[in-house]
Computed example of a mutant assay.
Amino acid sequence: MSKICVLSGKKKNNGYQISHSHIRTKKKQEVNLQYKKIWSIKKNSWIKLKVSTKVIKSLHKIKI
């Protein structure tokens, strides 16, 4: 399964890991994804989604 947030569309980011001698090596910064059961107002039932923790903090703003 892909590591993409269902609601926000966040995915991994490219970055550098910098050592003490300032040698840069490429790395991937993964999204912190969690499976979450969310109550859907439109469907009037529980749905299980893979969402990022950033979205979980602001779920009260999103109307699913």
Rank of each mutant, 00 (worst) to 15 (best):
K36T: 04
S52M: 01
I41M: 08
E30A: 07
S52P: 04
V31D: 03
K28G: 09
K12F: 09
W39Q: 01
Y35T: 03
Y16P: 02
Q29H: 13
I18G: 00
K11M: 06
V55Y: 00
S52K: 00
S40P: 05
K27C: 07
I41Y: 08
E30I: 06
N32Y: 09
I18Q: 02
I41H: 06
S19A: 14
K42I: 07
T53C: 11
N32D: 14
I56N: 00
K11F: 05
N44A: 08
L49C: 13
I23V: 14
K10Y: 03
K11G: 05
S45Q: 15
Q34I: 15
K10F: 01
N13P: 03
K28H: 11
N32C: 09
R24D: 00
K54Y: 06
Y16Q: 08
Q29Y: 15
K12Q: 13
I47Q: 10
K10C: 03
L33C: 04
K36N: 04
W39T: 02
K27P: 05
N14D: 12
R24E: 03
K37H: 06
I18R: 04
Q17Y: 09
S21K: 15
H20P: 02
K12R: 12
T53M: 10
K26W: 05
I18E: 02
K43R: 10
S21P: 01
K50T: 08
L33W: 01
K27T: 10
K36A: 02
H22E: 15
W39D: 01
K10H: 03
K36L: 04
I41A: 07
N32S: 11
I18P: 02
K42G: 05
V31M: 06
K11S: 10
N13H: 11
N44C: 07
K28R: 11
N32E: 10
I18T: 12
I47W: 06
E30V: 06
